[in-house]
């Protein structure tokens, strides 16, 4: 008997938000320590949509994926993403988007009050900040990211 049931085909992040659809066979999952805290954090900062995107990346992009066997979601990228998210002030009117890059990094993006892009890519060793309003683009070691965000994205 298979322990791991196959994931249902053609599901997107909306699948993880639907409470009304037919239930699909679940995979056996090990919950990591601190997962509940991460779930609370992402729900409070990015809402159900952000939570659904994160679950989608974790569950569907854990192996090689795409036409060029792109990299799986990086655990280190997730760590940096969550530690940053805990202190990040995203404007209330903003609707944040969450992406997965081909390097397996989480990318968080939203638009400022003037509709200009704010983007942060969380890498394993370095992270990248882009501010369209200033034409600013910088890559810094992860240990310097909090300072850069405090300087460039004041509350």
């Amino acid at each position: 008997m298979d322990i791991l049931a196959p994931t249902a085909p053609y599901t997107t992040s909306s699948h993880f938000l639907s409470g009304t659809g037919d239930s699909s066979p679940g995979r056996v999952r090990c919950f990591e320590p601190g997962e509940a805290a991460r779930e609370r954090l992402i729900l409070s900062k990015l809402g159900k949509s952000g939570w659904g995107r994160w679950q989608y990346f974790r569950q569907c992009f854990s192996g090689g994926w795409g036409e060029r066997r792109q990299k799986p979601l990086s655990p280190r990228s997730q760590e940096v993403f969550f530690s940053t998210l805990a202190t990040l002030d995203i404007p209330e009117q903003a609707t944040p988007s969450l992406f997965l890059t081909d390097d397996g990094h989480i990318e968080l993006a939203w638009r400022d009050a003037d509709g200009r892009a704010v983007q942060i890519e969380f890498g394993a060793a370095t992270s990248e900040l882009y501010l369209e309003s200033e034409g600013f683009e910088a890559t810094v070691p992860n240990r310097d990211l909090p300072d850069l965000l405090r300087e460039r994205l004041p509350a």
């Binding site: 992040s13 909306s14 992009f61 992406f99 997965l100 081909d102």
Partner: peptide, 24 residues
């Protein structure tokens, strides 16, 4: 433009669609 680079809820695309080298 695939689901990892397109957020259906916001209708936004990721810059990583073109960022980097050897874009297919």
């Amino acid at each position: 433009i695939c689901s990892d680079k397109w957020d259906e809820a916001t209708g936004e695309m990721s810059a990583s669609l073109f960022k980097g080298e050897n874009t297919s």
